[in-house]
Amino acid sequence: MTVSISFQLNGTSAQLDVADSQLLVEALRQHGSTGTHIGCDTSQCGACVIHVDGKSVKSCTMLAVQVDGKSVTTIEGLTQGQAEDMHPMQQAFKQHHGLQCGYCTPGMVMSAIDLVNHNPDPDEKQIREWLEGNICRCTGYHNIVKAVKHGAQMMREV
């Protein structure tokens, strides 16, 4: 069955006709938000993390119909298309080489921002525990941890 849903996507109204069985991540990608990635089929990897009403969720664990009336932010919503407009967390990932192939990166950044929203000054252990649901195969997490620490500091200073 096809269902019409309306929601805020990165600050703009979006209307989509989606199958009632469609996963949110698939609907977003079909709608053009291809910055949200699919890295697994068991809700383990976190490449698809977005924010729904300000909280991080794995968009593969939600149906598209569940965001009807809600506010969705994807990685594309953090910046307005100019390098200098990058969110502090994005800037920190670049500065500290917190990404290599870039595939896990959008989910990692969205998760990290939610961590800092919960805990403005996380220590290394807290960062590592929070990011347990985001798998990165490239970086060994070392620089991601550094980036999140610094990103948190920049977010506090904004």
Partner: peptide
Amino acid sequence: EDYRFLTGQG
């Protein structure tokens, strides 16, 4: 490379 990856434009 990072800008495009960090902003979902990869």
